[in-house]
Design a protein around this nucleic acid. Structure first.
Lengths: 204, 204
DNA sequence: ATTATAGGCTAATGGTTGTTAGCTGTCAAG
DNA sequence: CTTGACAGCTAACAACCATTAGCCTATAAT
């Protein structure tokens, strides 16, 4: 890997662990294995590194969204795309979303960084809501709209499934046995989807 | 209010907004309306202020625990105290817990500070789990033990009710209309307890 | 009336931080 | 062979930080 990318990754690792303000440029340089001033050959300054991390995350997120078999637009913009989303897709999507924010190093560190910075910086607060707060919650509510009777019920379902997932992010970070937390989340998603599938069968 | 307490409160407000490392002693002093060196007449240093905040929170928490009509010991230590906990008590307890961590200024700021610091400091990580992570989760699992068939089912119930509450802490912080988030949480708790009460009636 | 204490202040210190200036070596292009 | 860009380095700086020393004043105690 080239130096520029190594700086980005090491900086993110440190920002995720201690927070932007608590990390010095020298610490980043140390982690990369160069001296602090050399870092300015690659980035304009500390803030520039930070901005590049956010940009990188946005790029990765855009790529990932294309690969997944789920609607990309909001329900308001394009309601038809949500009509044939079945429970099995939601099951797989939910699990891969949890894995994404825990087991993938870059995303997991980015999530921790957002958690640390979202009170300090209004822009970070926006990103936190978008990626981890009301964003996924609203998205899942859209997904459940076809299944539920009304918008309020869809929102209840979204909260019921995403709430525990969001909580398990915290538990994952504090756990020694990370794998078991992932398992625990998967079995929770399974039991939730199974319950909805059983309810659907009764309807028929 | 005396100066010592004003320092404590202003410091907590700033720590919650920017994080411990990003707040300077001068900023705290400014907020109180004195000069930075005067602050050392009341506290040994910046870390001492921080420690006093944690201590204060522990005191407040101990007081509050005594007032609530819920068991204080763990289920392992004293299983009998959990036997006659009824759903109505859980409903009230859950709502007051949410209100406590959002609408009470000191507690809400302390929660935000923990959220910011729990990656940086192992001691903060412990407190975060104790107050907001696995702590309340395990406690609620204990509470549900009398109602559920086994420990695993009790844990599922705990996760189902506390997960969305924990998520709504984040939503509360990012929301413009805070009151509506509190309402939304209360209605979620209501629907959850109502569902369990209905299930209990069928059993009889 | 004198003293002691509490709580404010200014000035200063030693350490750290982000950043710039300027030097050096490597290596590919002309 | 020369040139020039690239990427590292040391030295230095101005700003800021937590903290200390020491002074002043008002109030409470003796």
């Amino acid at each position: 890997m080239n130096t520029k990318d190594r700086i980005l990754n090491e900086a993110l690792r440190l920002f995720a662990a201690k927070g932007y303000g608590a990390v010095s440029v020298e610490q980043i340089a140390d982690a990369v294995g160069i001296k602090a001033p050399s870092l300015y050959k690659h980035y304009k300054g500390k803030r520039d590194i930070f901005n590049s991390i956010v940009k990188r995350m946005e790029e990765m997120d855009a790529e990932e969204a294309q690969e997944a078999d789920m609607p990309e637009e909001t329900a308001e913009a394009n309601p038809e795309s949500y009509e044939d989303v079945d429970l099995e897709s939601i099951r797989i999507f939910s699990k891969s979303m949890f894995s994404h924010w825990t087991e993938e190093e870059f995303s997991a560190n980015f999530r921790r960084m957002l958690t640390l910075e979202h009170f300090a910086d209004p822009e970070m607060a926006r990103l936190y809501q978008q990626y981890l707060g009301s964003g996924p919650l609203d998205y899942m509510a859209d997904v459940f709209c076809a299944l539920a009777q009304d918008r309020a019920e869809a929102y209840d379902l979204a909260r019921e499934v995403y709430g525990p997932m969001h909580l398990l992010y915290s538990v994952y970070d504090g756990a020694e046995d990370k794998k078991s937390v992932v398992k625990s989340c998967c079995s929770y998603i399974d039991s939730f989807i199974d319950k909805l599938q059983a309810a659907e069968k009764i309807k028929e």
